[in-house]
Computed example of a mutant assay.
Amino acid sequence: MTEINSIEIIGLIAATCTTAAFLPQVYQTWKTKNVSGLSLPMLTIFFTGVLLWLVYGTYIHSLSIILANAITIVSVFLLIVFKLRYRNR
């Protein structure tokens, strides 16, 4: 495990902000079942990018990158599931 230094603390704060900013979209989509504003190609590309960031963060042992992308990949996965499940509503 990587020791947490001041730069990693900045990364953790950034990770918290960017991940938290994404969560209301997941909640709103789950609540309303309205997926008309979601693009499946964008979500798929975003999922791939987040997965690669997670692999990269694991490789360099960056706690902030690992945590942010682990949470975000679950959120994006849920949006993809919602998009596929509710697309005909």
Results as ranks from 00 to 15, higher is better:
S62H: 03
A68I: 13
K31F: 02
L63D: 00
Y86S: 03
C17T: 08
G37A: 12
I9N: 11
L43I: 04
P24H: 09
L67G: 03
E8V: 05
G49E: 02
G49W: 02
L63Y: 10
I80V: 04
K31N: 08
V74Y: 09
I45N: 07
V81E: 03
R89M: 08
N88R: 12
I65T: 13
P24S: 09
A21T: 14
A20D: 05
T29I: 06
T58E: 05
E8M: 04
T58L: 11
L40I: 07
Q28H: 14
F46G: 01
I45W: 09
T29E: 01
I4N: 10
T32R: 05
G57I: 07
Y59S: 08
Y27Q: 04
V35G: 02
L43M: 06
S75W: 01
L79I: 06
A20T: 13
S36G: 10
R85N: 06
I80F: 00
V50R: 04
T58I: 11
L78N: 01
L54T: 02
S39P: 03
R87L: 05
I60C: 06
F47N: 08
L40N: 06
Y27V: 15
I73S: 15
S36A: 14
I73L: 14
E3C: 06
W53R: 08
P24Q: 07
I4W: 12
Y56T: 01
M42C: 12
N5P: 01
Y86I: 01
L40V: 01
L23S: 09
I9M: 15
G49Y: 01
W53C: 02
L51H: 07
T44R: 00
G49C: 13
E3H: 15
L52W: 04
A20M: 05
A14Y: 11
L78E: 05
I9H: 12
T44F: 01
E3D: 14
R85T: 06
Y56F: 02
Q28R: 15
I13G: 09
T16F: 15
S36H: 11
V74K: 06
M42L: 15
V81T: 07
F22Q: 14
L52E: 00
T2K: 14
L52Y: 11
A14C: 15
L67N: 08
V35H: 10
C17G: 13
Y56L: 01
T48I: 14
I10A: 08
L52V: 11
N34A: 00
V50Y: 10
E8G: 02
G11E: 03
F77H: 02
L84S: 07
N5T: 03
F82G: 12
H61R: 13
T32Q: 02
I71N: 09
M1H: 13
I66R: 06
L79K: 05
T18C: 08
S6G: 09
V76W: 00
I7V: 10
I10P: 00
S36P: 00
K31G: 03
A14W: 13
